[in-house]
Amino acid sequence: MNPSRRLLLVAFGVAAVQIGVLGWMIAGRAMILRSGNDVMLQVQPVDPRDLLRGDYVRLAYNISSLPRELFGDTLQDADPGEFTVYVRLASDADGIWQPVAARYGSPPEAAPEARHIDIRGTADYSPAADMETISVDYGIERFYLPEGEGREIEEGIRERRFRMLVAVARDGTAQIKAFYDGDTPIHSEPLY
């Protein structure tokens, strides 16, 4: 093959690989939206001065800060270098999902009942740290908005009840699905 045609082919190959990586990322997220289990979370305002960061609002949830008791005595056995946390959720009377158990490194030991869903997050502190509450990020702490729309939501969150519908994959990965102001969805995510 002549060198110029080979260069074109190689360039096409590079483009295909990079596009493939993007496609794979999109497909993975769309898959969670399509087939994940839905949980409804209560949105809570975070650090009041610093909610709006350019083009997204930072969010915290009713499961963002977990009391130490939730981990039971699994904290002592956990690897000090472990930051991955699994939190077992169950729906309360209002339809908001609340944490019922949590563990570092692997899902809580007792087999989950049908009404339970395990969600995966990353803790801010190692299991060895002596903290009353352990804060956990689930990768859903940002909501991107068109420029200028953030301020309104930022103010709304302090006054009204906002909720977030989140899809949870079987491995515990969380994915934002729809954002509710009270009962009205303000943004809902299409698959693609």
Partner: peptide, 20 residues
Amino acid sequence: AAVTFGAGIGLVGQMYHLSG
């Protein structure tokens, strides 16, 4: 093109509200 690839990664993060 390589910068566009980076922009694409950013776009996916924005589309699905990924954080962290």
